[in-house]
Design a protein around this nucleic acid. Structure first.
Lengths: 361, 361
DNA sequence: GCAGAGGATGTTATCGATGCCAATAGGGGT
DNA sequence: ACCCCTATTGGCATCGATAACATCCTCTGC
């Protein structure tokens, strides 16, 4: 018995027993005592172990109910070594893409009996990401979904991802991780080709920040498509994903007479571009066609409604979770990239080019 | 000593010692051994305890670095009883408001040295919310931020919130919780009065789902303002926050000749309304003025740009965390509601009513 | 020069649940 | 009727870090 204190006269002080006025949360021992069984049996009952008699199970559940017992996660993790938690690392933003991706991840994870712990990083430098990984490691996550649009993955990060099952979403591939991604090259191709097929002689591009892999890939896909089709490649205008940056670039584009078609790397920027073109008196889509990327909820309800390339973020989240689960179950499995298909959604912001005659009033 | 095994010949089996091919994560004991000190000293060093010699601290830190040691959260929580985590309960949506609120909460919580665990609920019924609370309880959260737009709070929930410090955000007040909220009545008043001051004879309203407290409050504020001003109160059109529902209601409004001003309960719905009005040939703002709520990023960049009432979500999150921290520190403190001010942002979707003469072409 | 104060560090018990093993209790086969 | 097998249940050690307590040591004040 623990009460065999060496020399001292009093009872050993118990952290929780000291009277702090608040009733202690009931523990498994309390439930066991009330149900007249051992703590072990309570544990088995609650974790759905098959070998427990109905009668016993009922007694335990009754006791649990009566005491309002809730299992203690920390103890469970410590003891079992399994946290049933996965971690997600994303940039600290409020982008549509991030919200939807996390939505998909949480839904799928909960279905698989896992909970999700998110660690956001405010910047893309190695130290920040490393610290996010650390935070997750402290929580004993069994796997990590890394959704950081890094073009370059530092060796340090690469090494860290080696110690825990990791799935990369729409980010750079490291040799240690699986990748789930939308083929951004294809995104760009769909958008660009849609415009060239409408007769536009070339397509301009407003890109995202070039440090973002998605931005870079879309830019490359756009360029390649134009080259393949033997069209000239105009200079790239770079934005920062915000509507405001789209607006600024739109003001520039609107002043260039040649421009008849623009592929904008995000819907939010596209709205900014269209706004600027309007102000300059250029009509969309009659004078200039615009295509965005993401298919945010508002894309359909603005004037003109926005032609865009939809990315199935929620699906991607679910797919990432599925891969991660597989990876957790068998860490020796070989990484196997997966991709989900983007879809071109044609709406009102794109149109066939007017005949040259019509363009000279 | 623990190594005094009773009868068996072999060493007692250690879960972690069984050779599973993977190196065990280093623990505090390993660090202590390498640094030549006790585990306790390591603990003190890492938790910033003042009474540790520089030299010792340095040795410990070196050992930590060398082994790549990371503290184990589960063990820390179990032992100390403090999780340094707060929980957030929200609806499982991708709304702008939710994303920004959580953004604010996470930022503020991290600054205070806390991490955030979110539990989303797919529905508003008591059972779902109760289960979310349970999930958080299992994680030993020290406090909860409840951001659920319930009009009615069940006694069961009320009771649960009594057992852990809780701050309600923009939701119904329970006697046990503090509330941080934007005064939704004021939101409606700002929007409505803005329109009446522009000369509109009355203001129509597209509301959110009436089960949502915010929706109900905005509706009430709108009605009260009209009544105060002695204006007639048109019937309410109810939406579900989606642009599509705004569009549907817009199609109705556009067919009513009397309508010259509409207060829409969210920006997303407002875009839908405007879109519908356009299609019906009603101009915004010349024929009909529209005001939204939220001030989403795109509000400024659509045509016309949207007049709206901005809600400082991030600030709200920060304020909620501040209150929660105070509450955690002193659970006996009396609840003290706080509110943040909404701001009317006038843009291009509202205009003074044209003179009656001008309205008859 | 000595006692007392307080700083630095080690020792031990403990948090709550689980894994492994032992013990006990029925049930069926021969 | 006997024995083995399996379904159920209890006992004990353990996960990793911390609080409380014990100890040792050094520095100050009279």
């Amino acid at each position: 018995m623990a009460s065999e204190t060496p020399g001292a006269g009093g009872t050993p002080v118990n952290k929780r027993t000291v009277d702090d006025g608040v009733a202690r949360q009931p523990g498994m021992t309390d439930v066991a005592r009330l149900a007249g069984v051992s703590a072990q049996t309570v544990s088995r009952t609650l974790s759905g172990h098959p070998n427990v008699q109905h009668k016993t199970r009922a007694k335990v559940l009754a006791a649990v109910e009566q005491l309002g017992y809730r299992k203690n996660n920390a103890a469970r993790i410590l003891s079992s070594g399994r946290s049933r938690t996965i971690g997600v690392i994303t940039l600290q933003t409020t982008f549509y893409s991030r919200a939807n991706l996390i939505f998909g991840i949480e839904t799928a994870a909960h279905e698989a009996g896992y909970s999700v712990s998110t660690a956001t990083t405010a910047s893309l430098d190695t130290a920040a990401i490393e610290s996010a990984l650390s935070r997750l490691a402290e929580q004993d996550v069994e796997g990590v979904i890394l959704s950081v649009p890094l073009v370059h993955v530092s060796p340090r990060i690469e090494q860290l991802t080696r110690s825990v099952p990791t799935v990369t979403v729409d980010g750079s591939r490291t040799s240690a991780t699986e990748v789930v991604a939308v083929d951004q090259t294809l995104v760009a191709r769909l958008a660009t080709r849609h415009l060239t097929e409408l007769g536009h002689e070339t397509v301009w591009h407003v890109s995202g920040p070039k440090e973002w892999l998605d931005a870079a890939s879309r830019c490359a896909g756009w360029r390649d498509t134009l080259v393949e089709d033997g069209l000239s490649v105009p200079p790239v205008l770079e934005g920062d994903w915000t509507p405001a940056s789209g607006y600024r670039n739109g003001l520039v584009l609107g002043k260039i007479p040649d421009v008849t078609a623009v592929f904008v790397a995000s819907d939010e920027m596209a709205f900014g571009v269209i706004r600027a073109l309007h102000e300059l008196g250029r009509r969309v889509p009659q004078d200039i066609s615009v295509v965005g990327v993401d298919d945010i909820a508002l894309a359909e309800y603005c004037s003109p409604s926005l032609t865009t390339v939809a990315q199935p973020f929620a699906e991607m989240g679910a797919l990432a979770v599925a891969h991660l689960m597989r990876y957790i179950a068998d860490p020796a499995a070989t990484p196997e990239p997966a991709s989900v298909e983007p879809v071109l959604v044609v709406r009102g912001s794109t149109a066939a080019i007017e005949s040259p005659a019509a363009r000279q009033p």
